[in-house]
Amino acid sequence: MALALAENVVSNSIALDIEGVTHRYDLDGRDLQVLDNVSIVIEPGEFVALLGPSGCGKSTLLRLAAGLETPTTGRVLEDGRPIIAPDPDRILVFQDATLFPWRTVRDNVAIGLEARGLIRELEYRIDEVLKLVKLEGFADVYPHQLSGGMAQRAALARALVNDPKLLLLDEPFGKLDSLTRLRMQNELLELWKSAGFTALLVTHDVEEALLLADRVIVLSDRPASIVAEVRVDRPHPRRRDDAGLVALRRALLEKLGISHDV
């Protein structure tokens, strides 16, 4: 099923280098620093989670990696080249599905191909991807008729149809109910394994980070800087009650400033 996506696993991912990035916003004349000298090196095909308190600047990091903004100082590089503009190789998935309400699920998924003029050659991929995220029966439905989980799946399909080499996930399951979230986490993991893209996940859910990522990076409160970095060496599928993970969870919560008894 995922063969078409997994054909060239090697070239399907990129390395992301974040080099000494500091970023400020100008809010009505007030200077707001959100990132403070952040450096992260991500290998091709790696799954990295950014963990930190809400509003600490994690999302800004993703916007920089997507090319929606350029850093005030420092550099963001993909395979050694600076990122200066958005590119369908690096796709951002938001906490809200942000599906276009006037387009059916199929037409939403088609946007990337349409925008790049590839819709004729690659239209068949829409059905493939919809099948991949288990929405094949909902292709002609409008977004407001979908549940939260289905909408987020459609958003994933809209990203995956473009064969992204870097998938940037901004708390993608943050608004889903806990059961749907568990299911979607597993599905994301499957997609990552089969498609082979590099994944950078922003979350404030410690368990989610530990279950999914190869590496968890803990950021401080605003302006965000790196507090800790933890490698998670457990094979997938991971169990929530794995002793190693429980210990890591405790350590990470401590880094986030939350005491032992939680």
């Binding site: 997507a66 929606l68 951002l92 938001f94 946007i111 925008a115 809209r158 473009n162």
Partner: peptide, 18 residues
């Protein structure tokens, strides 16, 4: 128009015209 719609479309490769 919700700004995120533009962000989504831009990361998906949309031109200004699109």
């Amino acid at each position: 128009v919700n700004r995120s719609f533009y962000d989504v479309a831009r990361t998906l490769g949309a031109s200004n015209r699109f």
